[in-house]
Design a protein around this nucleic acid. Sequence first.
DNA 1: TCAAAAGTGTTAGATTTACACCCATGA
DNA 2: TCATGGGTGTAAATCTAACACTTTTGA
Lengths: 225, 225
Amino acid sequence: MTTFYGEHSKVWVSVDCIIFGFDEGKLRILIGKRQMDPGRGEWSLYGGFVRSDESLDDAANRVLYDLTGLRNLYMRQVGAFGSVDRDPGERVISIAYYALINVNDYEDRLRKEHGVEWVNIDDIPQLYSDHNEMVRKALKLMRQKIKSEPIGFRLLPSLFTLTQLQRLYEAIHGEELDKRNFRKRIKEMDFIEKTELIDKKGSKRGASLYRFNKRIYNEDPNFKL
Amino acid sequence: MTTFYGEHSKVWVSVDCIIFGFDEGKLRILIGKRQMDPGRGEWSLYGGFVRSDESLDDAANRVLYDLTGLRNLYMRQVGAFGSVDRDPGERVISIAYYALINVNDYEDRLRKEHGVEWVNIDDIPQLYSDHNEMVRKALKLMRQKIKSEPIGFRLLPSLFTLTQLQRLYEAIHGEELDKRNFRKRIKEMDFIEKTELIDKKGSKRGASLYRFNKRIYNEDPNFKL
DNA sequence: TCAAAAGTGTTAGATTTACACCCATGA
DNA sequence: TCATGGGTGTAAATCTAACACTTTTGA
């Protein structure tokens, strides 16, 4: 094996995941108490080291699968974090990723096995190392992204009511929306399809269930919320 | 030295810089022919390895200073690039940064010493490894950023005419703007100050020179272009 | 019968876009 | 004197934001 860059030093590279979920009207992320040194016992994002035979995206997908048992999650890179002393043990740079999951798809057994919890984004405690900074940036990027792409559906069941959808957007942006204006905009988006099904859980009267039609969206991707 | 993560493999980490400049009405970046193996002779971004005693941002600033002799450049991280085979020699992950410079501040002697050239963003050749992808993402991020923050002034001399400013925005977004609407919006931004000075180079009649007043901007940062 | 969520249109105000002519000057 | 870029205002169209009542039904 030829060594081109021998004179330079190598470092460890990890990925850390900000996993967003929407439950009980709140946007939440998964965090757990760190089970290894250094920093044992501190609240932390879930992460792992990048292996020599996998890309950064592969590493993030592996870590996400390991924690949630889910594949093909919507996932985007947040950025690289590389202060010299960010890890108290060694020089480690970390690439943060955020992912969106529908909380119903996540088996609670698996969640408990890994000792992670859903925490409201307004109540995030102090986290290990620079993880709070990662969360802030992930939230900022996700909020921005959701304005121009219909990624919110990744946080909902495949069938959802318009009130659920509105509550999701309110939770993400942290402000209330006008019901009539919201529904007016939804009606303009043909890829948000009304089904014949009625949800009876959320109200006595019942609310129509909608679904996101990816095919129609791809044909005419005009999204604005 | 305690080794917490010994069982995992380390990798090389580099930074690569997309340096934007505005000259002769075009948005350009600095690229050069690679002077080392692997990839010797291919067009490439300018970069360097991250040292063990510096953060990623420090490394990017060092690389930028080495190339341009300029400090305190506006600079933002583009992201981490980490395909397994992205570097033909070894496993190297790279963190891309973009920076904005005023081309007049860059000594041509230094530019030639490093063998780099200003290339119109519409005429970028095929670049080494994944550098084209880095450029695309940098451009996307910069275009987005400039809509909400007055970073464009970093690409202009400290005194500029409104026509220069308009041409800059046209070059960045790749579309012509209406002169009257453009100037109407500028007038609303108190931090773009008209000076008493007149530029006689750009026209016979002469055009007023303006400057960006950072203090006023910080007091009332309302920017929208 | 009443509490609770679903569903539905209109209007005023703000923002955005389109558009054309006169001015000052150096060559 | 004329070619060149500098400088200026208005009106139509579009988009955004504010706002209140009726319906259905399970408890």
